[in-house]
Amino acid sequence: MFSRAYKTAVTVPPLAWVAVFLLFPYALMFCYSFWSVTPAQTILHSWSLDNYKELFQKPVYWQTLLRSMWIAARVMLFSLLLGYPLAYFLSFYAGKRKDLLYQMVIIPLWVSYLVRAYAWKTILGSDGVLNTLLQYVHLTSHPLDFLLYSPFAVVLTLTHIYTPFTILPIYASLEHIPRNLVEASHDLGATLAQTFWKVIFPLSIPGVVAGATFAFVLSLGDFLAPLLLGGPSGIMISNIVVSLFGAAYNWPLGAAISLGMLVIVVSLLFMSERLEKKWSF
């Protein structure tokens, strides 16, 4: 029904745009990661693996990468622990208020990310809302200073930001479950716990995998929350990249780190897609 000319007209412009502004820049970043920079801050276009060697030899890089992954893993875990029961409640117990409650999950997503990270900063600071509240009710006599500028603050804030992202796919997969399966399980004498673990949970795994991937991948590359709330011990890998592109001015090394992140993220996406397919019905 659609002519060749029509297909060409809708295919070529987006294809060309994506090639110039996405594919080519990624390729350029790949090239940069093999180049080097002189002390006079000019880029040398000679090819070597030195940047990658430096990544593995200097502990600061891989340690920060590991710490970022550990932070992202905790964010993922907490988001699932908070998100799954909520999605389950919405799907099976919320009744008429289902749609309203669902919208309430989405609304925080529309609130600026920066604004929410900032809000946590004002809550956790040493003169912040939480510390002054604790002193006001005489639970503590002086400010708890481990709250802000710590990995704890980063994990808390990122969990707050990405929990709705994990709820959405889990809820969608729970809604997909045909209710007659659940009824059949009840009718055949399974207890609520058995029905949950043997019918509902396995069928919701694709949503869990998608939500977990969102939370992990999005928090792994974050650089605002660590800068705003992390302090020196909460620095993440993206912060290093940012500083290499700014003050430290070593674009090639920054490109190598970014490429490492890209490989991690793309392989995680690939794995999660495989898992989702395996568990979908």
């Binding site: 994506v18 594919l23 820049p25 650089f223 970014s258």
Partner: peptide
């Protein structure tokens, strides 16, 4: 897949590669 990538990739990778361009 390429079109969807910037949505899930850390924003700094997209920003960086474009600034190189």
């Amino acid at each position: 897949r390429l079109v969807l990538l910037p949505l899930i990739l850390p924003g700094i990778i997209t920003g960086l590669s474009l600034s190189m361009l």
